[in-house]
Write a protein that binds this DNA or RNA. Structure first.
Length: 834
RNA sequence: GGGCGGAUAGCUCAGCCGGUUAGAGCACCGGCUUUACAAGCCGGGGGUCACAGGUUCGAACCCUGUUCCGCCUACCA
């Protein structure tokens, strides 16, 4: 293992400066060429740690340092697991089907969807997807994300389409998917139906109008509503059964203004007597409450809004107006007839489409639903079986499930997505599903395997033209990774090996979607949880504490930061936030990261440039060396720090782990240990040879092992030092495949910490004195005078006098009453003499 | 309306299963350059731990309430 003399010249010439620009590129290439992060499916020895990597949607170049933060935080743990000896399954996915991509392409090419064919549009989406993936891949590589890119998938590729379609068939066969004709959430802007998860509530300021209806005997009845434009869709008027004011209306109809039509009066306890006049109009459909009453009480249907969000012919003279225009026109009409009895401004919550912020409407359409309302308990139960980091994030999951109102509508009236593996008989409408063997299938381009309808014998079939919700695919990622859709032996073995997955890292805003839907699918398909651990990251915020996003323009691109400060430094910033906590982006923190890198580099250089050709770190066990008190102290402190780091990494508390490691590295190792021992290298005397050797071995041991602790956080510089120096004495082709330092109990020398404390107090006081005297810290002095009031200290000070002299750069240690400068230990005083 | 997270030095954040004078980095002030590192080293100043109560020998930490910021969630039309 010993290096030859020629290489030794290289060590002496070890670069003074760390050139991260060159090194990071070189190391990245090295990892790729040597397949350092390759998952080994045939490895039967190591345990598997599998990761369900978040697939970012690739169709817009929206990546900012916040994304780097969240990926890095998960990656700290993943790299740690790899060093703990796990066979890591860490794929990279790219989410590129569905609405986000479509919207991106529409915007980029200013597309009018009525003037482009489905095929042309899909081609454009595929093209953008492809180039997007390349941009992402290169960024992830430059950040040092240690995924096995050989395991990549894209949600529009064949495997994902096959898996999504198989999921559909499996659920259909299990009776968990139904086609139903019912009111659904609809985005008039995107012209597609939505699921509850695609709708977010937004505060709008609106007006509550008091509108006069008429009872059959002509009495005015005031009803408050924010949506007068839906008057034409009014199908009933409701009151609370306990409301004595309206008991007289029982069994009667009331007259709807402007439309001169009669609707029945109904009673329901959900009506708040104290809101408005206590009378409420129900339309088909203005909100979820309308849908509920319509279903429960079998109300008439009067649909006045079309799929474009415009009023239709049923609305009479308002036909063709959009909702906003119609509202204005209806109010004007009512005002002319003096039927508006009051207007109150109010702030109310309106459901909007999360991709385009357009208020959603309800329309009636035949759609495919995955039943989820019946199994809320199972999903909550699954949530309890998984370990959440941080734990408080679980509340969001539970809350979401408890508040679910609709089954999961998976039909989308869009182009770019995974098609349903379904045809309908033209005669009788019977559903014809694809055979599993033909997946993935495009029903628009292929015929069903059967040649006649099993129900009516019809021979014509119509393909389902809707595509599936993008989450229909994303929710399958653990099963996509596990090749669940494939029946061969290797796929089955992979499923057994990596599923349930070890880790799901993800962002907090997709708990209700990606996380929830994945649990649904896993429970339904495998009766198992999809993963054991969940890491939820916080957001990257801008300097002012606002969430970074492209639309807000407060966005810091990672490329600039990386080229300015290095990827390792950016990752250092990412480590600053505790998991789940938001983190402001501060360039100063990245600068601090770069400082740490430089310190690591220089500390290593001190060792590297001082070793001699005979150096052999493994000539003896470290505990068999003739260790001084100060050596024992640094080893003890290292082992203690190591233990803390390891415990914290085990509980996904990477932030505290790195802080502990850096504190040890700066305060214990660099500022004190190296400063205390360094002058052994200034003296060429033979009597120093043995001590030099010991010190070099201690330095090698500590610096290599702390480098390993740093490795998950700063993968580039640690690898560079490992390959260019430590690797000459170590086996293994990467620090990231090396084994995490094992805690060595035999290197804990408890009394050394106390004894070193005495030395450190003396050193600190000597530094203060030097500062007071304007004396250079390394300037050699003749004597250090020490006075101690504690007789127990005398023996100790005698024992460590060599280290004291070395530490304070003095020729001699002398006990003397003249020493009068108080140290932090009130029982010790010192003075310095030339 | 309910819930969660946050409020600690000028700035960004640790500490929070109670226990000596509350920490780090940056910024600020003073000093130090042949012997790993000036992108450095040594030293220093700086905080009534959001506010008000309470429990305790002792509270940044536990309890109650309040304010502000952020988020999740919610059928008051």
């Amino acid at each position: 293992m010993q290096k030859n003399t020629e290489s030794f010249i290289d060590f002496k010439d070890f670069p003074k400066n760390y050139d991260y620009q060159t090194v990071e590129k070189k190391i990245s290439q090295y990892w790729e060429d040597n397949k350092i992060y390759k998952f080994e499916p045939c490895d039967k020895i190591r345990k598997v740690y599998s990761v369900d990597t978040p697939p970012p949607y690739v169709s817009s170049s929206h990546l900012h340092v916040g994304h780097v933060m969240s990926y890095s935080q998960a990656e700290f743990i993943i790299r740690y697991k790899r060093m703990k000896g796990f066979n890591v399954f860490y794929p990279m996915g790219f989410d590129d089907n569905g609405l986000p991509t479509e919207r991106y392409v529409e915007k980029k090419y200013k597309i009018n969807k009525s003037k482009i064919t489905r095929e042309e549009f899909i081609d454009l989406c595929l093209k953008e997807t492809k180039s997007g993936i390349e941009v992402y891949k290169s960024l992830w590589k430059s950040v040092g994300i240690s995924a096995d890119y050989g395991l990549s998938y894209s949600t529009i590729d064949e495997r994902c389409r096959k898996t999504s379609q198989k999921s559909f068939l499996d659920l259909y066969n299990k009776g968990l998917i139904e086609r139903r004709n019912e009111p659904i959430l609809w985005c008039p802007q995107c012209r597609t139906s939505l699921a509850q998860a695609d709708v977010v509530l937004e505060e709008f300021s609106g007006v509550l109008y008091d509108i006069e209806f008429k009872s059959m005997d002509g009495k005015g009845l005031i009803i408050s509503t924010t949506r007068p434009e839906l008057l034409g869709g009014c199908v009933a008027v409701y009151a609370n059964p306990a409301d004595e004011r309206y008991g007289f209306l029982k069994g009667q109809n009331v007259n709807v203004p402007l439309y001169n039509k009669e609707v029945p009066v109904k009673y329901d306890e959900s009506v708040d007597m104290n809101y408005g006049t206590g009378l409420m109009m129900v339309c088909t459909w203005g909100d979820a409450e309308d849908v509920k009453k319509w279903k429960e009480h079998k109300l008439d249907t009067a649909i006045v809004i079309d799929k474009a969000g415009r009023l239709n012919e049923l609305s009479g003279k308002f036909n063709g107006l959009n909702v906003k225009e119609a509202k204005k026109a209806v109010v004007e009409d009512l005002n002319e007839k003096f039927l508006i009895k009051g207007e109150k401004p109010l702030i109310h919550n309106v459901g909007v489409h999360d991709r385009c912020a357009t208020p959603v409407e309800f329309i009636l359409a035949e759609q495919w639903f995955i039943k989820i309302l019946d199994n809320k308990d199972k999903f909550i139960g699954a949530g309890n079986q998984m370990t959440w980091h941080p734990e408080f994030m679980k509340a969001r999951y539970d809350e979401w499930i408890n508040n679910l109102k609709w089954d999961w509508n998976i039909s989308r009236q869009r182009f770019y997505g995974v098609p349903f593996p379904v045809w309908y008989c033209s005669e009788c409408g019977e559903v014809i599903t694809a055979a599993e063997t033909e997946l993935p299938v495009d029903p628009a381009a292929n015929s069903p395997a059967v040649n006649k309808c099993p129900k009516c014998g019809g021979k014509e079939f119509k393909p389902e033209t809707d595509v599936m919700d993008t989450w229909m695919t994303s929710s399958m990622t653990p099963l996509i990774n596990s090749r669940w859709a494939y029946g061969d032996i290797e796929s089955k073995e992979l499923l057994n090996t990596i599923y349930p997955m070890g880790l799901r890292p993800q962002a907090q805003e997709i708990i209700r979607t990606w996380l929830f839907y994945t649990v649904v699918k896993s429970i339904y398909h495998t009766e198992n949880i999809p993963f054991k651990n969940i890491m939820i990251s916080g957001w990257g915020l801008d300097k002012n504490g606002k969430k970074m996003s492209k639309s807000l323009g407060n966005f810091v691109g990672p490329e600039d930061i990386i080229s300015k400060y290095s990827a390792d430094a950016l990752r250092y910033w990412a480590s600053k936030a505790n998991l789940g906590q938001d983190l402001r982006f501060n360039e100063e923190d990245v600068v601090a990261g770069r400082k740490l890198l430089i310190k690591i580099w220089n500390a290593a250089r001190f060792l590297i440039t001082n070793i001699s050709p005979e150096f052999d770190p493994y000539e003896k066990n470290i505990s068999d060396l003739k260790l001084s008190r100060i050596d024992k102290w640094v080893l003890t402190e290292f082992e203690n720090a190591l233990k803390v780091c390891e415990n914290n990494m085990e509980s996904y508390e990477y932030s505290f782990a790195l802080r502990t490691a850096s504190d040890f590295f700066y305060n214990i190792y660099c500022d004190n240990y190296l400063e205390i021992i360094k002058n052994v290298f200034w003296d060429e005397g033979e009597e120093n040879a043995e001590r030099k050797k010991t010190v070099l071995n201690v330095m090698y041991f500590v610096s290599l092992n702390i480098l390993k602790v740093f490795a998950p956080f700063m993968p580039f510089i640690t690898e560079e030092l490992y390959l260019s120096f430590y690797g000459n004495f170590e086996k293994g082709k990467s620090i990231h495949l090396s084994i995490w330092p094992e805690f060595k109990k035999e290197l804990i020398f408890s009394d050394s910490v106390k004894i070193a404390g005495i030395l450190l107090n003396i050193l600190e006081a000597s530094r203060k004195l030097r500062t007071n005297l304007n004396l250079h810290q390394n300037h050699r002095i003749g004597k250090i005078l020490i006075q101690t009031l504690n007789p127990d200290y005398i023996g100790i000070i005698n024992e460590i006098s060599g280290d004291i002299m070395s530490a304070v750069r003095a020729e001699r240690v002398v006990f003397s009453d003249k020493a009068d400068f108080k140290t932090a230990d009130g029982d010790i005083f010192i003075s310095l003499e030339k």
